[in-house]
Design a protein around this nucleic acid. Structure first.
Lengths: 148, 148
DNA sequence: CTACATCCTGTAGCTGCTACAGGATCAAGG
DNA sequence: CCTTGATCCTGTAGCAGCTACAGGATGTAG
């Protein structure tokens, strides 16, 4: 049984796909290894040959990553959007869940930023022994132990 | 030369430090390995013994991580806040830089959230063939398909 | 004295890549 | 036809910052 072969004319090599999608070569091979992308056809010499299908898929993955989806979430989305065009409701669920994650992250970061900003504002920048920035980091009195 | 030894009475074992600081045991040992924490004294049997100094240090690190500082940043802060109580200006610089990073991250996430929220809002949840969520992920027409 | 908790070292795994090493293959110029 | 240089291949190891074992050695309570 011969592995399916392709001619160069059937598609593009990995480097071109890489440039096209803005995903670097090693990442593409990595996606193949972890089965985010199907194994493509190969030329006689063993070079990968990609067609428009893979291009769309990879572009989808890249976009998903840009939007902060994990590879697992993207996998789920790919499966849902796959051949059977499953229910949009499921897609919606994944996206909504992701939005909640994002909101939570924004909240945390916003609180953090306020705290740090306020603290830095109090900082003279001189050689003060009690630097307010170090103070918020320092936990003296907050942990249940004693002295020093 | 004998390795410095300690009695149990001199301090606490790693498990207690772990509970005290809310940092898990393996992480403490990991910090020691990467030299975020100094190697503590040991009992005759080789068990680590921690005192208040290490406790404060670990608590400082933990707090820094909570505030989103990288270990390298925290290392820098620890050095600055160290024996010489170096200039507050340097601490301030690190913190300000970190704040900028946070702001950038918040901005990205906020844009993202708006996009996703808007998209999900358009989603009926039914079995529509064209799911808007999949559409923003899909890049058809956006990639420089075939010959550029 | 026996459980059982806690400690030790060391290694491998996680996510999402990136960066080699050490070859094979391809396309173009001489 | 041959050489150069770009591109391809596989495989492994590394990044941050941990976490999770395996397989022992100790400590402590009943």
């Amino acid at each position: 049984m011969r592995p399916i072969k392709a001619l160069r004319a059937d598609g593009m090599p990995i480097g071109e796909l890489s440039r096209l999608c803005g995903v670097n070569i090693e990442t593409i091979r990595y996606y193949e290894k972890i089965k985010m992308l199907p194994a493509p056809l190969r030329t006689e010499a063993g070079h990968r040959v990609y067609g428009p299908k893979e291009t769309r898929m990879l572009a989808f993955i890249r976009r998903g990553r840009e939007l902060g989806f994990t590879l697992d979430q993207i996998r789920a989305l790919l499966n849902l959007g796959g051949p059977e065009k499953a229910s949009c409701a499921e897609v919606r669920e994944i996206a909504k869940h992701h939005i909640e994650d994002i909101r939570a992250k924004i909240n945390d970061l916003t609180k953090l930023e306020r705290l740090l900003r306020k603290t830095v504002a109090q900082c003279s920048g001189g050689k003060v022994p009690d630097c307010p920035v170090l103070d918020i980091l320092d936990t003296q009195g907050r942990i249940k132990t004693s002295r020093t």
